[in-house]
Design a protein around this nucleic acid. Structure first.
Length: 454
RNA sequence: GUGGCCAUAGUUUAAUGGUAGAACUGCGGGUUGUGGUCCCGCUAGCGAGGGUUCGAUUCCCUCUGGUCACCCCA
C-alpha cells in the first residue's frame, strides 16, 4: 500500500514535469470512472472481509456449497427467468454482441445462473435439496446513487429441491443472522404472493378496485394500472395512500395451500424469535417469485431509498420454466455494497470502531548491513502468526519509530549494525520505553510472551 | 430513463472577471541508533470542451461525474 502510493506519486510527478517543460505539449489525459463503477480501496477492505467471512461461516454451518457462475451469460437466460416487462431486463441489462455475433450480457443477478447451472449439471441427481451460495459482482445499467452502482456485489443463498416452509425459514434465518452478526440493525418485511393463478385473480381484483378510483390517482399510478398493477402498492404519493390502505390485500386471495405454507413460515420465524413486519404491499419485481417474498431493510442511517439491503423468496416455477424438472426453490440475494454502507453509517452514528491496532509489532531496521538481513528475519517470522509492520524503504530510525507510533503497536523490534553482529535484536516496549536485548532465535517466543500470545 | 442540487490539492475547504490561500494527510528536515508534542520546508488543485470578454476558476451552454427524489431494485 505504502509502496503503491509512492509509485503512483512518482509517475504523476514525472508526467507533470514533462508537460511543464514542454509548454505547447497537450495535457496528459486523466481518466475518470465509467459511470456507476467504483473502486473498493484497502481502507474499505476490513468491512468487505468481515462480511464475506460471516457469509462464508453461515454457508458452512447450513451446508451451502459455493458456486461461481460466469459474469457473461446468454441474454435469453435472464429474459426467460426474470421476465420481459421487468425493468431489470428491459432497461438495465448490459447486453452486447460477442465477437462471434451471439448476444450475451453481463449478469444482472445470479439466481437465473444458479438455476441454469442446476439443470446443466444434472444436480437433481444428487441428494436433495441442493444448497448453493455465491458472492460476486452483478451489473445493472441503472441511474447511480449512493449505495446503488452499476457494478455491485451480491451474495446469495439458494436452496433447490425443498418445498418445505422450513427451507424458507432457514433462508430468512441466515439473512437475519448475517446482519445480526455484523451488528447492523435490520428488519425483515415479509409477504406471500401465492401461486400464479391466485396472483392473476388478485391482479384482476386490484385492477378493478383501482379503476373505480381512477380519477383520484397520481399520474404514475395511472400508468402502473395498465403496465404493472402490482406496483400500485409501492406508490409513495401521499394522495394515493388512502386508496392504497383500502386496496384488496393479496393475502386474502390465497388458496388453502398457499395460506398453509405462509402460516408455517411465520410460525418458524416466531419460534426463531426473528422479528418481522407483515407487509401486504410487498411484491417483488422479478417474475419468478411465488408464495413467500421478503426484503431486509436497515434501520440505521437516514433511511433513504437505498435502505433495502437484500431480498428474496420462493421461486418454485423457475427451474421448470428454464427447461428442467419441476423443482421447488427458495433463495435470497444480499447487496454487499449496501451492507457496507449501512454498517459504516451505523458505526459512525454510534461512534464504533471496528478495528484494533493494524499490527502486533513493528520491525525497524537501521543501516545497510541490517537492512540486508531484515527481509530474511521477517520471513523467518512469517509463520509465527504475528502481524508485523515494517517499511524497508525508510532508512532513519526516527521515521520508523514514527510509523510504529502511528500503527499504535505495543512493541518494536529494532535491528541495528550492532545487533546484526551479535545476532540479537532490541525489543522496545512503546508504552514504558523499556528496551531489552534478545537473542534472534528467541525473538518469536519473547514477543509472543509479551503479547500474551503464548 | 425523468427531474432538482453540486463539482477548487489525496481529504475538508477559502477567496476572486486579471490563473488561487488554508487545514489535515503525504514526503523531507530540526546534525545521520529511537516515537507520541512542537517548529520549518517540499509536493499537490480550479472535472472536460465550447461561448461571452482585452482577459474566465469565477458568467452562459454542452458534456462528464457525483448526489437526491422518481422509476426500479441490491
Amino acid at each position: 500500500m505504502k509502496f503503491k502510493k509512492k509509485f503512483v506519486k512518482k509517475i504523476k510527478k514525472t508526467e507533470t514535469k514533462k508537460t511543464k517543460s514542454l509548454p505547447e505539449e497537450k495535457k496528459v489525459k486523466t481518466y475518470s470512472l465509467v459511470r456507476g463503477m467504483h473502486d473498493i480501496l484497502p481502507k474499505e477492505e476490513k468491512y468487505w472481509k468481515k462480511i464475506f467471512h460471516v457469509a462464508e461461516g453461515l454457508a458452512g454451518f447450513f451446508q451451502f456449497g459455493r458456486v461461481e457462475t460466469p459474469l457473461l451469460e446468454e441474454v435469453g437466460l435472464f429474459v426467460r427467468s426474470i421476465g420481459k416487462g421487468t425493468d431489470v431486463v428491459d432497461k438495465e441489462m448490459y447486453t452486447f454482441e460477442d465477437v462471434d455475433g451471439s448476444k450475451v450480457c453481463m449478469r444482472p443477478e445470479a439466481t437465473a445462473s444458479i438455476a441454469r447451472s442446476y439443470i446443466m449439471n444434472g444436480m437433481w441427481n444428487v441428494p436433495q435439496p441442493v444448497k448453493l451460495w455465491y458472492w460476486g459482482p452483478m451489473f445493472r445499467h441503472d441511474r447511480p446513487q449512493a449505495g446503488r452502482y452499476r457494478e455491485f456485489f451480491q451474495a446469495g443463498f439458494e436452496t433447490l429441491g425443498n418445498a418445505d416452509p422450513a427451507a424458507d425459514a432457514e433462508i430468512i434465518l441466515m439473512t437475519y443472522n448475517l446482519y445480526k452478526d455484523l451488528g447492523i440493525p435490520v428488519e425483515i418485511h415479509i409477504n406471500s404472493i401465492g401461486n400464479k393463478e391466485e396472483r392473476e385473480r388478485y391482479k384482476e381484483e386490484l385492477t378493478n378496485y383501482y379503476r373505480s378510483k381512477r380519477g383520484y390517482l397520481c399520474a404514475d399510478c395511472k400508468a402502473r394500472l395498465n403496465r404493472n398493477p402490482l406496483r400500485l402498492l409501492d406508490c409513495k404519493e401521499s394522495d394515493c395512500q388512502p386508496i392504497k390502505e383500502e386496496a384488496p390485500k393479496i393475502i386474502d386471495w390465497l388458496g388453502a395451500e398457499s395460506n398453509a405454507h405462509f402460516t408455517k413460515v411465520l410460525e418458524y420465524l416466531d419460534e426463531l424469535g426473528i422479528p418481522y413486519n407483515l407487509r401486504h404491499t410487498l411484491v417483488r419485481g422479478l417474475d419468478y417469485y411465488n408464495n413467500t417474498v421478503f426484503e431486509v431493510y436497515t434501520v440505521a442511517g437516514e433511511g433513504g431509498a437505498q435502505s433495502a439491503l437484500g431480498g428474496g423468496g420462493r421461486y418454485d416455477g423457475l427451474i421448470e420454466i428454464m427447461g428442467g424438472r419441476a423443482t421447488p426453490a427458495v433463495g435470497v440475494a444480499l447487496g454487499i455494497d449496501r451492507a457496507v454502507l449501512a454498517w459504516k453509517q451505523y458505526n459512525e452514528q454510534n461512534k464504533l470502531v471496528i478495528s484494533g491496532p493494524d499490527y502486533d509489532i513493528f520491525f525497524a531496521q537501521l543501516g545497510e548491513e541490517s537492512k540486508r538481513v531484515s527481509l530474511r528475519l521477517l520471513d523467518g517470522l512469517r509463520k509465527s502468526g504475528l502481524k508485523i509492520g515494517f517499511n524497508l524503504g525508510k532508512n532513519s530510525l526516527k521515521n520508523q519509530m514514527e510509523l510504529a507510533n502511528n500503527f499504535k503497536v505495543p512493541f518494536v523490534i529494532i535491528l541495528g549494525q550492532k545487533e546484526v553482529q551479535d545476532k540479537t535484536a532490541i525489543v522496545r516496549d512503546m508504552e514504558s520505553g523499556v528496551q531489552e536485548v534478545v537473542d534472534q532465535k528467541k525473538l518469536e517466543a519473547v514477543i509472543k510472551k509479551k503479547l500474551g500470545k503464548l
